[in-house]
Design a protein around this nucleic acid. Structure first.
Lengths: 224, 224
DNA sequence: GATTTCCGTTAAGCTGGCTGTCAGCTTGGC
DNA sequence: GCCAAGCTGACAGCCAGCTTAACGGAAATC
C-alpha cells in the first residue's frame, strides 16, 4: 500500500513513517500542503494521513479540495483530542476516519489494516438508473454512456437520491444535507440545484412530489 | 437506514435512539448480546452500534462471531476513553469505526452520515394490502407492482388508514387530520378525496361504512 | 495582483396542477 | 318509491415549484 503522510511535527512524523514502513507499506512524507498538492498530482496513493494544523493552511481545505476534484482516496485525519469540531468537520468533508493525538502506533496499524481491507474488497459497483450509470465511490455519473460533470453541491444532492432509491426526500432534509447543522436558508436554492440536475441528467430523473419533496424517477426505485 | 443499537446504559441508549430517529433512520435497541443475536438473525441492518461492555459478555465476541459468519454489516464500537486496547482489538476484529464515550451527539450523526454515504441504504419493510404495496417511510405506494403517485392530501388520508388497519375512521376525524384545528369545512371535500384515492388505488381499497365513515378494505386488517 | 472563469445563491415572473366547491347522479335503506 | 347519504365529473383560483438572469465571491490562471 502507498501512503502519503502530511504532518509538520517531525517527531510524530518520523514515528509514523517508521511504523508504516515496518508494516510493509511505502510512504511519502511531506510537511506542507503545497508539497502535498504536488505529490497527489504526480503520484497515486492508497491512503492519505492528514494533519489538520499545518504551517501553510488547514488540512480541511486540502481535503475539501481533493474531494471536490473527485478524488476518493481514503483519508485519515489526525487531530488533537480537544478539536472535536475539527473532527466533525473533517468527517463531513469526506474523511474516512480520524486518529486522536497522541495515538498509539499499534492503533495506527489497526486503522491502516481496516482501511486497506475495506477498499481492497470493494471494487466500485455501478448503479444503473434509467439511462444513467453511477459510481458512488468514484463520484462518477454517465448519461447514455457519456460522462456528466456535476459540481460539488449537485453531487451531494444527487448522491442523496441514489442512496435512497424510491424514497421521497423533503427539501428540508436536502437542505440539512447541504448545510449540515447551521443556518436556515430562506430561498429556493434547492429548487435551483434540482433544476440544474435535471438539465444535466434528464428531466425524468427527479420526480417532484408536490408539497412533499423529490425522489428518483423511473428506473430508480424499480426494485420495489 | 436501519440501525441496531446494542447498549445497556439506558440513559446513553435513549439519547442515541432519539438522535438517530431525528436523523430520519429507524433503530432497534437491545441491551443484551443474546437479544442482539436474535435481531441480526431475523432482520437485516445497515449499521450496528456496539457497546463493548455488556451484562452478558463482551461485545468483541459478538463482533468476531458476526465477521466469522461472513456478515459485513458496518459496525461502530463505543468504548470508554481509557480502553485503548479494546479499540485496537475492536478494529482488528473487523469494526469499521469507533466512538469514544462520552461522545457528542453531533459526532454520532457525522459518523452515521459517513457510514450511510459509504453503504447505500436499504429499503424499508413493505406493507401489503390486497394488490397494494406500501412503504410508509418512503411515501411509496404501488398497485400490482406499478408505482402510484399520490398528492399531498391524498397521501395524508391514505396514511391514516394504513396506520390503523381495520379501524373505521369518521369523516370528522379525517377532516381534523387534514386541516388540524382551524376551519370548518362545509362541503364534501373528504368524499371527493376518497373518490380520487379509489380511482388511483382501486375501488375495493376503501370501504364505506354508511353513516359512520371509511375503513381499509379486504386484506387490510382482516386478521385483527 | 489583476483578470477571468466557475459556482452557488438570490430574486422575479411564470406555469401547471392541486385542491375546494358545487351540481347532478347513484346507491342503499326503509 | 322516496329520502338521505355518498359518489364523481367539471371548474376555477391559487400557490408550490420551475426557470431564467444577474450578482458576488472564490478559485484559477496569467
Amino acid at each position: 500500500m502507498r501512503v502519503l503522510l502530511i504532518e509538520d511535527d517531525t517527531v510524530l512524523g518520523a514515528a509514523v513513517q517508521d511504523q508504516i514502513r515496518s508494516d510493509g507499506h511505502s510512504i511519502d512524507w511531506v510537511t506542507r500542503l503545497d508539497d502535498a498538492e504536488e505529490h497527489v498530482a504526480s503520484a497515486s496513493y492508497d491512503l492519505i494521513l492528514l494533519d489538520l494544523m499545518l504551517p501553510d493552511g488547514r488540512g480541511i481545505v486540502f481535503l475539501k479540495k481533493r474531494r471536490a476534484a473527485g478524488d476518493v482516496t481514503p483519508v485519515i485525519i489526525m487531530t488533537a483530542l480537544d478539536q472535536l469540531s475539527d473532527r466533525i468537520e473533517g468527517l463531513n468533508a469526506g474523511a474516512d476516519d480520524y486518529l486522536v493525538k497522541p495515538f498509539d502506533l499499534t492503533e495506527l496499524s489497526a486503522r491502516l489494516n481496516a482501511v486497506s481491507r475495506r477498499y481492497a474488497g470493494n471494487p466500485n459497483p455501478l448503479i444503473t438508473i434509467g439511462e444513467l450509470e453511477v459510481d458512488l465511490a468514484a463520484r462518477y455519473v454517465a448519461r447514455n454512456g457519456r460522462p456528466v460533470t456535476l459540481t460539488a453541491r449537485e453531487w451531494v444532492l444527487f448522491e442523496a437520491f441514489v442512496q435512497r432509491p424510491g424514497q421521497v426526500l423533503s427539501k428540508d432534509r436536502l437542505e440539512e444535507r447541504l448545510y449540515s447543522f447551521d443556518s436556515e436558508i430562506e430561498s429556493n436554492t434547492i429548487e435551483v440545484h434540482i433544476s440544474r440536475l435535471r438539465k444535466k441528467l434528464g428531466r425524468e430523473v427527479l420526480e417532484t412530489q408536490r408539497g412533499v419533496g423529490y425522489r428518483l424517477g423511473s428506473g430508480g426505485g424499480g426494485g420495489k
